[in-house]
Design a protein around this nucleic acid. Sequence first.
DNA 1: TTAGTGATTTAGGTATATCTAAATAAATAT
DNA 2: ATATTTATTTAGATATACCTAAATCACTAA
Lengths: 220, 220
Amino acid sequence: MIKLTHAEENYLKAIYQLSEAGKKGVSTNDISAEMKTKPASVSDMLRKLGEKEVIEYRKYYGVHITEEGKKFALRTIRKQRLWEVFLVEKLRFAWDEVAEVADELEHVQSTILIQRLDEYLGFPKFDPHGDPIPDEYGDVRSRPRLPINEIDINGTGQIVAVKDSSAAFLRYLDKVGAYIGARIKVLEKVEFDGSIEILVDNKKTIFMSKDVAANILVMV
Amino acid sequence: MIKLTHAEENYLKAIYQLSEAGKKGVSTNDISAEMKTKPASVSDMLRKLGEKEVIEYRKYYGVHITEEGKKFALRTIRKQRLWEVFLVEKLRFAWDEVAEVADELEHVQSTILIQRLDEYLGFPKFDPHGDPIPDEYGDVRSRPRLPINEIDINGTGQIVAVKDSSAAFLRYLDKVGAYIGARIKVLEKVEFDGSIEILVDNKKTIFMSKDVAANILVMV
DNA sequence: TTAGTGATTTAGGTATATCTAAATAAATAT
DNA sequence: ATATTTATTTAGATATACCTAAATCACTAA
Ligand SMILES: [Mn+2]
Ligand SMILES: [Mn+2]
Ligand SMILES: [Mn+2]
Ligand SMILES: [Mn+2]
């Protein structure tokens, strides 16, 4: 049976998520940026992950995650997101405060711990950022969702997730009053810079840049 | 500010607990046995802990923990015991199943996490094995307690802790029906081998060896 | 089609945490 | 008081996970 270290789990999760985002092979530099380590360290790690056959690694041509690798990555992601739910729902963490702690908790090794946590939380399907929680077999049920900037004028929907989970972005959303579950309607799209005005819960209007809008995901 | 690695935290906790048990300096071999590492590895670690001034280390003469070291050890112990309470109270772990998992969870770095966990658990004062949980300043309020074999015939009391927290011992206690909180009365002490018969909750009698009795702590 | 640039890997180094085997200090027994 | 035993440390290795600097590969632009 393959065993992964904490560092290997972190890299593999990053590789999985980068490959989901981009579809094609993931580059050393992308991983380096995501992991905040130097490209040289990434090359080292890719060799090791290749040997463990959780990625397919061709020098100079980026990596692809294997089926086996996906299973490991999804297991880590499941743990991360369950712990995020725990921190928010049970320990009253804000959604911008969970990243660091969940990034440690996700490495605790215990199958029963995760099963029990899942049960204790009521088998949540989504984490505090709207991201789907894989089940124990690695199945992810993802909802169809669109960034706000791709919604037509007068189109309506419900905020279901954020693409960027950085503390800075999340705190900004808190400040302007955008949150998961909010019902929105697109009131105006400025041709010039793509900025957008939305109505939240039929009460409040929010102006946002195209950049912000692109990071808020809505179910129509 | 001193930073300790996971391994250093584990060693320091072991050293603290061994020195509490024995009072005098702790030997390399004792630590080696407790940590399940070789004496050579312990020597290495002692040098490092000495440099960080959490222990006082004189080669060949064992170690003493410093005041600074005690603070760190008690912080780790606090975290371990709070997580043990969480696992038992919230996730329905048995008291013999928590050791391994809590031994990982105790290393998660987040002051707020522990404060919130403490609050969430209702500020418990004792862990599932009856051991006191230090407060956030490292103060431990320990109850006076005696091993059953030191109680006189017809003496009564309440089981408040176990000295040995190994899964084997705890499962044995489950089997014979001894548990934290049980009210007991010493019915007989066999002169020959020190074995003891007790009455539990005025209902059930249990025979136990002196060895077992010595590991069950009672408040009189 | 080749020179140059940027991406990537390799080489060599540090720090942590372990090990085995050898050396040495301390404790014990004769 | 010395020899033997036991405890402990040191020496030298391995494995992980990083780093910087140098080398090398791949792609692109002339
Ligand atoms: Mn992580
Ligand atoms: Mn999340
Ligand atoms: Mn531990
Ligand atoms: Mn305990």
